[in-house]
């Protein structure tokens, strides 16, 4: 009798396996992605702040005020500009370099494998660690870079303390840190190109450069679009480097969108305004995604 009811329960559960297996993830996504996203959109139209939490009566709907304030405010414009500047510096450099490195390390020889690992090392070092290390390297007095410049009889540079150079420094460091990741993606894509294609091309008399131009590059088209996309989105999220190295300075030259979001939310505690930045940031990412999807052939779209 007991065995029978146990059986029935088993069967009942089995018939609902699809629902039961997917439910934990779906509920978590609902609670921690969909719900907060809705909250962010909602909060961006209110004056929510630490004060409205203390005195709930003061919470009010403010319409587009937060957005208007942001767009009219030079700070936001500067943060947006800084972010775009960083993206414009990093994306072409990082993708181009990653492709070149991938070509360099594609192969089974010992030295190529050694290089592959060393290019990947910065990727598996956390950004916080690298931020600290590069601060040391950029140190204007005894930093390695200025020591080197002096040794070459060149004038030492202010690096991080100059508004003109600070963002360039962060970009250089970021490219160096992340290039191994994109290189690996290119490498994986290159290794999935059937060798028979190259053999056929060689029989047709194509040289190395021809093989690269006529086979590798076209075969990597979708991978490249994808790599450009993720590099762009990663670059938009720039936060740790300016937060730890420059604190947005000097003179706001490294203040980025996410840094501003963080400051508005956790220093000024103006949640409504910060939520508006969140929403605008999302729209930005959405636009980039949209462009990427238009470029990708339909069957490879996410």
């Amino acid at each position: 009798m007991q065995k029978h009811s146990c059986d029935r329960l088993g069967q009942w559960l089995d018939q609902r396996a699809g629902l039961l297996l997917s439910l934990p993830a779906l509920l978590l996504l609902l609670a921690f992605v969909i719900l907060p996203f809705t909250m962010a959109v909602y909060a961006s139209f209110t004056n929510q702040s630490v004060r409205t939490f203390m005195q709930p009566g003061t919470l009010a709907y403010v319409g587009w005020d937060n957005y208007r304030e942001l767009l009219g405010d030079g700070d936001f414009g500067q943060a947006l500009f800084n972010t775009m500047y960083f993206v414009a510096l990093v994306v072409p450099l990082q993708v181009g370099l990653a492709l070149a490195l991938a070509v360099l390390v594609n192969g089974a020889e010992m030295w190529r494998r050694m290089l592959r690992i060393s290019f990947f090392m910065p990727v598996i070092t956390s950004m916080a660690v690298l931020a600290v290390v590069w601060t040391l390297l950029f140190n204007p007095g005894a930093g390695v870079f200025n020591t080197l410049l002096r040794a070459l009889q060149l004038s030492p540079q202010p690096f991080l303390s100059s508004p003109r150079q600070a963002m360039l420094c962060l970009a250089a460091m970021s490219v160096w840190q992340g290039v191994g990741f994109q290189m690996m993606i290119f490498l994986a894509a290159m290794q999935s190109i059937p060798p028979a294609l190259y053999e056929a091309a060689r029989i047709e008399g194509a040289g190395r450069w021809q093989c690269f131009r006529r086979i590798t590059l076209p075969m990597l088209k979708n991978t490249t679009i994808f790599v450009v996309y993720i590099t762009t989105v990663f670059a938009f999220k720039l936060f740790v480097q300016p937060h730890l190295i420059t604190q947005g300075g000097p003179r706001g030259s490294t203040r980025t969108l996410i840094l501003m979001l963080y400051d508005e939310a956790f220093t000024n505690m103006r949640y409504g305004k910060a939520a508006a930045i969140s929403v605008m940031f999302f729209v930005l990412v959405l636009l980039v995604t949209f462009v990427q999807r238009r470029l990708m052939p339909r069957e490879e779209r996410l």
Binding site: L29, V33, A40, F281, V285
Partner: peptide
């Protein structure tokens, strides 16, 4: 349909959710 919704969630960057998640 459910899967299409899940796939669409991929593009929401965590940074845009950080504040409401903190409040929650």
């Amino acid at each position: 349909l459910l899967f299409a919704v899940v796939a669409a969630l991929i593009i929401i960057p965590f940074e845009a959710l950080a504040l409401p998640l903190f409040i929650m």
